[in-house]
Design a binder for these strands. Structure first.
Lengths: 265, 265
DNA sequence: GCAAGGACTTCCGTTTAACGGAAGTGAGTC
DNA sequence: GACTCACTTCCGTTAAACGGAAGTCCTTGC
């Protein structure tokens, strides 16, 4: 028939890829069809095409997963690639000094998008992953991005429901605004078990040529550790170096990257 | 009409994604259509669908590039993700000792596929990138993978034309075989300006539970540096630790990952 | 300023390949 | 041996993909 309910074959195939996320890294055919609200036969046919090309793979227990070929293609995406190329060496320097988890993140929509992460054996195991999204109000890098964003953006963000991650997450808009003001005043963001119990973080903004926040650089430690402020000078120094290289390479507000939301500063 | 020349809409859309590679990270619509041998109007329609979903983005000069969303989805691919999770902390330890470029690679088809890379400011700039492919006979990690593969695989590999990367690349099958035998004897692979002039490397294999080579771990330095053998004990120690964790996590021959080629050992 | 060239975009009649309900297969359970 | 559940295949219908051609909008050259 080709009476596909308004959606093109291509967009349906892409929806199947979009059905995968951190919580669902593998899916059965039935789950895929259900998540995309399409008939099993349709999902079956499209999935076969995706598998033939290498976008999906089938593992030992017949579950589908994102294919290695898609990983390879995804790494060609210029935005994360350039940002990573620039940030990673400086993050490496930071890691050597601190031996803690180092994060580099940008804002995408209303989320913190983790672009790069360094970790070692001495660092606390944490949930962040490269390519992952976490809320802006419960993470160090997120708060650093949010606090230095435009007032309009902060207004929009605070007007939306604030997800509670732990009992320490700030979910009251007023308290969040005060927290963001304090962050701006001191020049760096702090969190204390707001994303995960047992973890604290400190982060600084990375500014572009127009002095708008383009990214943020942060570090996560186990909560019982000593004061986080001691990391701020190093974080600021590396953030400044990253900003300098980003400006030199014209990586500023990277057009088309931060979608459908007002930026401005 | 829907008289698409034998290919489904889905596979054509995927072919458009496949048109991008390291040499062509951005393409115009016309280039895309040409590379995929499809009419401009068709490419236009499919590209619009890919862009709407976020698989492609359009940059300032109207060129298409792989979208950030595809990068995010690609990172969900279990094989590279698990391997990276396991290998990176050990690579970090290796980096701290050597301050050189650290690579972790697997074989995919007849290529060396770079799964993880660590680099810093003190390391030599090199062409390898995560998600990239390079030949097996001209790279340290590639030779380590090749030397410890099955004899059938080595036969197949040597029978194919050996690409010359520099004037030092071994392109004679007989010489490559002797080089691989020497690699097996000494237990680690060496290269000397065989991939890039000015760079040398040393690498060791990482074995799985069945004692077949599953991956390799290597390090690249500037060619004027002192002897590479001094890095071997550390490389072997970390490779053994990675192998141990891989076996514990059942990451051995990872079904469906290394495609269409005989493995065995 | 205007024509030519090139790259992208839109239009639209034709037709075939995508659609999905239904029936078939096959592994696992009781 | 009947039941369930997940996946696979079949096949008639038809709407959605196809792509040639015409249109738009740049940029370049004279």
């Amino acid at each position: 028939m080709a009476q596909g309910n308004g959606r093109s074959a291509t967009s349906r195939a892409l929806d199947l890829l979009g059905a995968f996320d951190v919580r669902h890294p593998t899916l059965t055919l039935t789950e895929l069809a259900a998540r995309c609200a399409m008939p099993l036969a349709t999902a079956h046919r499209l999935v076969a095409a995706l598998e033939a090309w290498g976008a999906l793979e089938r593992n030992a227990d017949n579950r589908y997963q994102i294919g290695t070929r898609l990983w390879e293609i995804g790494l060609l995406s210029p935005v994360p690639r350039r940002l990573r190329e620039i940030a990673l060496p400086f993050m490496q320097d930071l890691y050597e000094k601190s031996k803690e988890n180092i994060h580099f993140a940008v804002r995408d929509g209303h989320d913190t998008l983790y672009v790069a992460k360094l970790t070692g054996h001495r660092a606390v195991p944490i949930i962040s992953r490269e390519g992952n999204r976490l809320p802006m109000h419960s993470t160090g890098v997120g708060k650093a991005l949010l606090a230095f964003s435009s007032t309009e953006f902060i207004d929009t963000y605070c007007a939306r429901p604030l997800v509670r991650c732990t009992r320490h997450t700030i979910v009251e808009p007023g308290r969040l605004r005060r927290e963001l003001a304090a962050t701006r005043d001191r020049g760096y963001a702090l969190t204390s078990e707001e994303m995960t119990l047992g973890s604290c973080s400190v982060a600084v903004p990375v500014f572009d040529a127009r002095d708008e926040v383009a990214a943020s650089l942060g570090l996560v430690v186990h909560s019982v550790r000593e004061n986080l402020a001691k990391y701020v000078p190093d974080l600021k120094a590396e953030a400044a170096k990253i900003a300098k290289v980003m400006v030199e390479h014209h990586c500023d507000p990277y057009p088309g990257f931060v979608h459908d939301l007002p930026r401005g500063g």
